[in-house]
């Protein structure tokens, strides 16, 4: 065995034990009828769990909820983040302070953020509804038809700084000279932004949006801490639904099948996006 392969062995061993084994075992589970409450009757059932998942209207609803959440959250985070990044780029004084201050939401664990907003936005005791009531406004943040948007806002609150960080790094990495040329060429600020800043920033934007979208797809803590999927199933995201099936209802076989289906969907999206990123990198 060559020296290079020997050097790789420890990593391979750790990787196999910590990632490979759980992945394969989950795949095995997804092909069985495994339930924690009846685990002595476990047997292989082929693709039955996959078929059951695909026929489950709640799974499709959860996918739709997650999709809506991801699209809305990432869309707002991107535009808001870009706006803040552009503003911060122009900042001359106390730059480092603003930058670190802005990043603080990212340092807090999402479950704590979830709990925090659960109280802040609670209709009876929350600070924000109480404050709004003083102006005669009444809004149930976690009521029917509103809860999902409130969760989007929480995600925006916590993760916009991440967008800012990546986009700011991207902006500062751009060469100054095309922008100076554009100034002399008579382009307005908006024209420069549309025709120069955005196109030049596309590689960074793709990566930032991709990372954030994958991360947002995993949304679980806010739902767990605040709505538990409700009202009804309006905030039942795919991760929470899978958790409920596997951990609360003990149907690990079915939950594994759900996870694998999600994995396939995500992989398809990622591959498509990566191809696009690569092609824009080659032909900016």
């Amino acid at each position: 065995m060559s020296f290079r392969l020997k050097l790789m062995l420890p990593l391979l061993a750790v990787f196999t034990a910590s990632v490979g084994y759980p992945l394969l075992y989950a795949f095995y589970l997804s092909l069985t009828n495994y339930k924690i409450t009846a685990r002595y009757n476990t047997r292989l059932v082929g693709l039955k769990q996959y078929i059951a998942t695909l026929q489950d209207p709640n799974y499709w609803s959860a996918l739709q909820v997650t999709g809506t959440f991801v699209l809305l959250a990432v869309f707002i985070e991107f535009w808001l983040g870009l706006f803040i990044a552009l503003a911060l780029q122009k900042q001359t004084r106390i730059r480092n302070f603003t930058r670190s201050f802005l990043l603080t939401p990212m340092f807090v664990t999402p479950i704590a953020i979830g709990l925090m907003f659960r109280f802040l936005l609670n209709q009876q005791l929350g600070v924000i509804p109480t404050f709004m009531a003083k102006f005669g406004l009444s809004y149930d943040f976690f009521g029917p038809g509103k809860a999902l948007y409130s969760i989007v806002l929480i995600d925006v609150w916590q993760w916009t700084p991440f967008m800012v960080l990546l986009l700011l790094a991207g902006l500062e990495g751009l060469s100054r000279s095309p922008f100076e040329a554009a100034k002399v060429d008579g382009a307005s600020a908006f024209f420069t932004f549309r025709k120069i800043t955005l196109p030049l920033l596309v590689p960074v934007i793709s990566v930032a949006v991709l990372i954030r979208a994958l991360d947002a797809m995993k949304v679980f803590e806010y739902v767990f801490a605040i709505t538990r999927g409700g009202p009804a199933i309006q905030t039942m995201t795919i991760q929470y639904y899978t958790y409920q099936t596997g951990i609360q209802f003990y149907r690990l076989g079915l939950a594994s099948a759900m996870s694998y289906l999600l994995l396939i969907i995500v992989m398809v999206i990622v591959v498509i996006l990566f191809r696009r990123i690569e092609s824009t990198r080659k032909n900016p």
Binding site: S177, V184, I196, P199, V202
Partner: peptide, 19 residues
């Protein structure tokens, strides 16, 4: 700069790479 009616040629060309 845009209101001065000047045109500039830069040392590093400063072309718009994506255009």
């Amino acid at each position: 700069p845009k209101d001065r009616d000047v045109a500039m040629v830069f040392q590093n060309y400063a072309l718009y790479a994506h255009l």
